[in-house]
Computed example of a mutant assay.
Amino acid sequence: MPENPSVWEVRLGMYATPQQAEEIKERIARLLCSDPDHAPPCPIPWSVSLLHGAGPGDDDPYPELVEQAEAEKHLRP
């Protein structure tokens, strides 16, 4: 019995500058569609977007990333 397609969401949390985040977004887009100039639609519809993490005082969905980044700052020579 074939499964019915549905929408799936893959989340990726990263501690990065806006420029680094945009670069990663573009790399992911190229993984999903290696030929951006093809005639639409893509065989598997997809989208990608960037969402800025929480600000001071907000609930942070990835507190472990900030903690890891801070710890690694202290390990660098």
Rank of each mutant, 00 (worst) to 15 (best):
T17Y: 00
R30A: 06
E9K: 10
S49A: 14
E23K: 09
G13L: 00
L65N: 00
Y62R: 00
P40T: 05
C42F: 15
C33I: 05
P40S: 05
L12S: 04
C42V: 14
W46H: 06
S49F: 11
D35H: 13
P18F: 00
L32W: 03
L32N: 04
L50I: 08
I44T: 11
M14W: 09
K25P: 00
M1F: 12
E70T: 05
D59L: 15
V48N: 00
I24Y: 04
M1L: 12
M14Q: 13
I44D: 06
W8H: 13
G55F: 07
E3R: 13
L32A: 11
D35I: 06
E72K: 02
Y15V: 07
L65Q: 01
E72G: 01
L31W: 15
A29D: 01
D59G: 12
R30P: 02
V48R: 00
L51C: 09
A69Q: 03
L32T: 08
P2D: 10
P61D: 04
Y62V: 07
S6T: 14
L12N: 05
S47Q: 12
A54G: 10
G57T: 04
P41L: 02
P61M: 08
G55A: 10
V7Y: 14
L51H: 12
E22D: 13
D35L: 03
L50N: 02
E23W: 11
S34I: 07
M14E: 08
H38Q: 08
Q19W: 07
E23Y: 09
R30F: 02
V10Q: 08
Q68D: 11
E22G: 08
L50M: 03
S6F: 15
L31G: 02
S34H: 13
E9C: 15
E70W: 01
A54C: 03
V66T: 09
Q20Y: 01
